[in-house]
Design a protein around this nucleic acid. Structure first.
Lengths: 109, 109
DNA sequence: TTAGTTCATTGCAATATTACAATTAAGTTC
DNA sequence: GAACTTAATTGTAATATTGCAATGAACTAA
């Protein structure tokens, strides 16, 4: 069906999955890496940098913005995108708490 | 098109995206959390625990297994699934390196 | 005002994902 | 063997995602 049954899961499980999902495309990973590298960015740069068409980049930026990981300020004809530091840190905290589990494997395998 | 153009991205970017993608569904997050909690598991438990149908759970387990995050041992009629510690640690390392970036935001916003 | 620039939006096609009923496969128990 | 249990596989339907051409919106420059 392509439709995730979010109502069966906890808020935290859904939150983790949403964050992970938006990171689950190499173009969005590349965009974020680039924004970290240059600390502030114009979308035109990204189209050249990444190699996908402008509408495609624009759409990926939209998804990142929707989750709050980046924010954009209009500046003349351009739009300046950058990492939303506070939301990034929050996302990082949620993901680290999930990822940084350790296990004994004493019962199995 | 639904088809990711992986060839435009680095191996690392694709690897990060693949790991993130498999974590991008709450059922798989829930499965992993459960495996961590009980340290060794039978799939039947998961169907009851999570509430999706058996084939759906089986399919999610398959994806987790494909990425190597879990492994399954046949044990009689049941299959014992558990976290693949080594691969989990590797995934964690890759993701932490990506997530744990800091930024100054001195140029923008 | 006209032309140019930059980015968002719309519309569409192709592929991917999610979910499950039905079935199969492989083992156990009697 | 027959009946039962557990989990994988197959087939199918519905929705989501990805990508881009075409277009639109907003600003700038001449």
């Amino acid at each position: 069906m392509g439709l995730t049954k979010t109502e069966m899961f906890t808020d935290l499980q859904n939150e983790i999955a949403l964050f992970a999902k938006v990171l689950g495309h190499p173009a969005r990973v590349a965009i974020l890496q680039h924004l970290f590298k240059i600390e502030g960015c114009i979308c035109g740069d990204l189209v050249d940098e990444i190699g996908l068409a402008q509408p495609t980049i624009s759409q990926h930026l939209k998804e990142l913005k929707l989750l709050g990981l980046i924010k954009g300020n209009v500046e003349g004809t351009s739009v300046c995108y950058c990492i939303d530091k506070e939301n990034w840190t929050n996302m990082k905290r949620v993901m680290l708490q999930f990822l940084d589990q350790d296990i004994d494997n004493k019962n199995c395998c």
